[in-house]
Amino acid sequence: MALNTPQITPTKKITVRAIGEELPRGDYQRCPQCDMLFSLPEINSHQSAYCPRCQAKIRDGRDWSLTRLAAMAFTMLLLMPFAWGEPLLHIWLLGIRIDANVMQGIWQMTKQGDAITGSMVFFCVIGAPLILVTSIAYLWFGNRLGMNLRPVLLMLERLKEWVMLDIYLVGIGVASIKVQDYAHIQAGVGLFSFVALVILTTVTLSHLNVEELWERFYPQRPATRRDEKLRVCLGCHFTGYPDQRGRCPRCHIPLRLRRRHSLQKCWAALLASIVLLLPANLLPISIIYLNGGRQEDTILSGIMSLASSNIAVAGIVFIASILVPFTKVIVMFTLLLSIHFKCQQGLRTRILLLRMVTWIGRWSMLDLFVISLTMSLINRDQILAFTMGPAAFYFGAAVILTILAVEWLDSRLLWDAHESGNARFDD
């Protein structure tokens, strides 16, 4: 018995066209964080690309023209004298008006014999932002004059995390709450300039795509075929072959399989920071003279006294001054041990922890910024005066060393310790 099946006739004509040209192939790229070699397709503007294995951002879609970056830099340069030299806060102490600005706080630190601690604050609040705007201006002028731009481009990517104007702005709020127990506070004209400078700096850093600047100024022929001998440069993120001198053909720094002496430098910085954190938390970090009496505060006791007036601000200072430094030390110690013992479990967790400490590390400088600003506000000789204690130097040095330890660690070593050939990683 035959089955009668109805015929289905399409209502619209289906047209099949042959592909007349070869589909576009992607360029081969190595991930600078996990060293995976993959094919990167062509990316349009405002599109980002991520590593298929570790999800690290390979290409950032946010990109401004150099002219727009230069305009932002010149605007920031105009704001800087007002943000640093004009009063941020006014207080009335014992019937006398006192003005506080950024430069005055750094000068008070240096004047009291601790120039190293003052230079830490100076670099993060004044030096690094000033280098940022002058570097962008150098790129703008240098591109037109045919100057060598490689050193500036190499420095810009590392400079971003040292620009800490946003953290200093939080420190202004913390210092205001600490001082309000002794005097009446009012915002100064410099505060508005400083807030504007923070906003412009944040926007500029978020749109400063150094890798795209490398592509514009020093374009290189990408690798179009897969080759395990391809290496990625950690300076400019170019994937290719080393030249005859073993250097990256684009930025001219040595092109090595792994960062040289990464573990040794990381261990040295980490152990030194552990040693410095002990006096930083045991010795007094601030000293207040009130009517001839002397009151010393460690980091913890200062947080407890701050909690009596504002528990939320005390929580912020606790996280930045105690929780973050010790968390960074514990995480980095764990990561280094996992590399030495070739741990194969929990790779995803370790990668996330490394990215976390990379982002939060700079916030530990908050305590030094609060001390710097408070020193310029309260300084009335023996009637009422505020000065920093010996722990300030140890704390600042420990924070900087932990930042350097994270920067010096080559994250690809975590993958080397893991089993080879993993296309995915999980716990």
Results as ranks from 00 to 15, higher is better:
3 L>F: 06
4 N>Q: 09
6 P>C: 05
8 I>D: 11
11 T>A: 07
11 T>I: 06
16 V>Q: 08
17 R>E: 09
21 E>C: 05
23 L>D: 08
27 D>E: 09
29 Q>M: 06
29 Q>V: 06
31 C>H: 00
38 F>A: 04
41 P>E: 07
46 H>Y: 10
48 S>R: 11
54 C>E: 00
59 R>Q: 05
62 R>V: 09
65 S>Q: 05
66 L>H: 10
69 L>C: 11
70 A>F: 12
75 T>L: 05
76 M>P: 05
77 L>P: 06
81 P>R: 08
84 W>D: 06
88 L>F: 08
100 A>I: 03
102 V>D: 00
102 V>C: 05
104 Q>F: 04
104 Q>V: 07
108 Q>M: 15
111 K>P: 04
112 Q>V: 07
115 A>S: 13
116 I>V: 11
116 I>W: 02
119 S>K: 01
124 C>H: 02
126 I>H: 07
127 G>F: 01
128 A>G: 05
130 L>N: 13
132 L>V: 06
133 V>E: 02
135 S>H: 02
141 F>N: 01
145 L>H: 08
147 M>S: 06
151 P>H: 03
152 V>I: 06
153 L>Q: 12
156 L>E: 08
157 E>I: 15
159 L>R: 01
160 K>M: 14
161 E>H: 10
163 V>S: 07
164 M>A: 03
165 L>M: 14
165 L>H: 13
168 Y>C: 09
172 I>R: 00
174 V>F: 06
178 K>T: 01
179 V>N: 01
181 D>M: 02
181 D>A: 02
181 D>E: 10
184 H>L: 05
187 A>N: 09
187 A>C: 11
191 L>S: 13
199 I>F: 14
203 V>F: 10
209 N>A: 10
211 E>C: 14
213 L>D: 08
215 E>D: 14
222 P>N: 10
222 P>L: 13
225 R>Q: 14
227 D>Q: 11
231 R>A: 04
232 V>A: 14
234 L>H: 14
237 H>W: 12
237 H>D: 13
239 T>W: 03
243 D>W: 08
244 Q>F: 11
255 L>T: 05
256 R>T: 12
257 L>C: 13
258 R>T: 06
260 R>G: 09
264 Q>C: 03
265 K>I: 03
274 I>F: 14
278 L>N: 10
282 L>F: 15
284 P>N: 01
286 S>K: 00
293 G>P: 05
301 S>M: 04
305 S>V: 08
305 S>M: 11
306 L>W: 00
307 A>I: 13
308 S>C: 08
311 I>F: 14
318 F>N: 09
320 A>G: 15
323 L>R: 00
324 V>P: 15
324 V>Y: 13
328 K>G: 00
328 K>Y: 00
329 V>N: 14
330 I>L: 12
335 L>D: 04
340 H>T: 12
342 K>C: 11
343 C>M: 14
344 Q>F: 13
345 Q>M: 14
345 Q>N: 06
346 G>D: 10
346 G>M: 13
348 R>F: 13
351 I>E: 10
352 L>P: 07
353 L>K: 10
353 L>R: 13
354 L>D: 12
355 R>T: 14
357 V>N: 12
358 T>S: 09
359 W>T: 15
360 I>C: 08
365 M>G: 03
366 L>I: 11
378 I>V: 04
382 Q>C: 04
385 A>G: 05
386 F>Y: 01
387 T>S: 06
390 P>Q: 09
394 Y>V: 01
396 G>M: 02
397 A>T: 05
399 V>W: 02
401 L>V: 13
405 A>P: 02
408 W>Y: 06
411 S>Y: 05
412 R>N: 01
413 L>Y: 11
414 L>P: 04
415 W>Q: 09
415 W>F: 11
416 D>W: 11
423 A>C: 15
